[in-house]
Amino acid sequence: MELQLMNERRHNKIYNDESYTYKIFNIDYDKKDVFQEAFITSKVEELDAHAPLIDSVYKKDRQWCIKFDLIKGESLFSLINNNPENIKEYINKLVTIQTSIHTNFCTAIPRQKAKLQYGIKNSGLDESTQFDLLEMLDSSPKHKKLCHGNLTPHNIIISGDDYCVLDWNHASQGNASADIARTYIWFKINMPEYAELYLDSFCNMTGTTKRYVNQWLPIVATARIYKDNPEEFDILKSMIKVNEY
């Protein structure tokens, strides 16, 4: 059966046929990361988080693949680009989905604090800055909410009144505002004209102060530096400088 390319990313490509969706990873993608994503997704499947349903994990032509039940619809990213006049509606939709995810708990997946600590320690920033950020992280509220870890408009597929949330490989249990900070950073880098609209929507919907979310920015931005994406570095570094720690 012929596969139709649906999306192409840095580490994988997404294909559909008439019955299934396939996430096919690059040849050099680490096996353990494939199984980590499959494991986390399988645990989130049990929750009310609209995760895709895994059918199987296998290797073909030296490439690992996660096979899902068919995922239909259009990405929120595509909807925003094609219908910018509806941006407030789409941003509110994203925040509604994200806050709904945060109502879940999943003790089987990694802890957000440990992931952030690892990112900070391997960020390459000077030891004094790392120490301050680790102290700041250690003193933050200890929450255990389900956090997606990379909830961008690319990872939300809309189909009528239904939706599916993709790419759970960065998911963790932790603080919802840190998860919001990660999405805000994505907007600042990729769709800066909508970043404040997104943050305003979250704060208005949840009664959270901007100041509280902003306190997470230097922590999350530093952990993101560890990913070593050169095009992001200047923006991430500016977020660390702006905040007092």
Rank of each mutant, 00 (worst) to 15 (best):
L236F: 09
V213C: 06
V95N: 02
K13M: 13
N83A: 10
K60G: 00
L94D: 02
T103W: 02
Y90N: 13
A178V: 01
S56E: 12
G119S: 06
D132A: 07
D55P: 00
Y194H: 13
I80L: 15
H148I: 09
V242K: 15
I87T: 15
D55L: 11
R224A: 15
C65N: 09
H102R: 03
E74N: 13
D33H: 11
L134Y: 07
D132R: 13
A114V: 08
D228N: 15
N26E: 07
W216P: 05
A114S: 09
G174K: 03
E231Y: 07
W64H: 15
K93I: 05
I156N: 01
Y198A: 00
C65W: 00
I180P: 05
S19Q: 14
S78D: 12
T21G: 11
W216T: 06
G160I: 04
P84N: 03
Y245A: 12
F25M: 10
W64L: 05
A38R: 06
G149F: 04
Q117G: 06
D33E: 11
S128A: 07
N82Q: 14
N81Q: 15
F202I: 11
T21M: 09
L116E: 02
I189Y: 04
I189G: 04
E18T: 12
S139L: 06
L70G: 04
A108E: 14
P192Q: 08
K121R: 09
S172Y: 00
V57H: 05
D132G: 05
T129K: 14
L125K: 11
Q98F: 05
Q112K: 03
Y245W: 13
K59N: 13
Q63N: 12
N12S: 14
E244F: 08
K60T: 01
M6Y: 02
E37W: 02
R10I: 08
C203A: 09
D55R: 15
F68H: 06
I109N: 04
E127V: 11
Q173W: 08
F131I: 01
T96W: 10
K60Q: 10
D161S: 14
S56K: 14
E244G: 04
D234F: 10
D167K: 11
F131A: 09
Q63G: 00
L236W: 11
G124C: 02
V44R: 05
Y245F: 14
L166W: 02
M239A: 05
I66Y: 01
G160P: 05
G124T: 03
E232W: 14
I156P: 01
K121I: 02
H102W: 14
D69K: 14
I66V: 10
Y22G: 06
K210L: 06
M205V: 03
C65P: 00
M239I: 10
T96M: 12
H11W: 07
Y184W: 13
D162H: 08
I157D: 01
R182A: 10
R182K: 12
A195V: 09
S100Q: 15
K144G: 04
L199Q: 02
V95A: 15
L134Q: 03
P192Y: 07
K188D: 01
N214P: 01
T206A: 07
T152M: 05
S75W: 04
A114T: 08
N190E: 10
E8M: 09
C203W: 06
